[in-house]
Design a binder for these strands. Sequence first.
DNA 1: TTAATTAATCGTAATATTGCAATATAATTA
DNA 2: TAATTATATTGCAATATTACGATTAATTAA
Lengths: 109, 109
Amino acid sequence: MGITKTEIFTDEQNKLALQLKAIAHPARIATLQLIIEAKACICGDLSAELGLAQPTVSQHLKELKNAGLIQGTIEGVSVCYCIEPEAWKNLNNELNKLFSSYKGINSCC
Amino acid sequence: MGITKTEIFTDEQNKLALQLKAIAHPARIATLQLIIEAKACICGDLSAELGLAQPTVSQHLKELKNAGLIQGTIEGVSVCYCIEPEAWKNLNNELNKLFSSYKGINSCC
DNA sequence: TTAATTAATCGTAATATTGCAATATAATTA
DNA sequence: TAATTATATTGCAATATTACGATTAATTAA
């Protein structure tokens, strides 16, 4: 079919998947890194730093924003993007839960 | 175009994106959780637990395996899947780096 | 008001993903 | 060997993603 069966999974699983999907692209990882290091936070600068066209970057920013991971503040004619601290912390926590639940070799293999 | 421009990103960014993409699906998150909790580790059991058809689960397992996150051990007629400890630890480390690089509110916004 | 600057949206082409029925492959058992 | 059991592969339809040119909106400056 081509559409994920979200109804058979928990809200937590679906939310984590959506936020991970938002990060799971090299351009968006690079974007987050640039934003975090404050090397660039407006679309045009990010476009230049990344080497991707402005509409492409705008689209990537939109996805990160839709996932709640960044927020945009209008500053005159441009928009300054930065990390949304709560969502960032929550995602970090969810991932820590997932990764720490693995305690090493288990019974079956 | 529809194809990611991997050549303009670092190997680290591309690898992290690939591994995150492997996890960024509720069925694969659920699969990892089942494997970790050792509630199911063979394709047929996972298929029953997840409520997805066997070929669908087999495909998801293949993607997790291609990303290096799980390994399969042939046990008679079936295959037991479990976490690949090194890759799991590495991904955890990479994510920790990314998340901890954010120190809170920065200058621009 | 007009021009300049910047971001967002639209439209589109190329490609990738999701899910499953049907089938093929591989290993064990009778 | 033949039947059984379990996984993997193939093929396909529906949908989603990626990238960007062209355009539109929104804000500031002249």
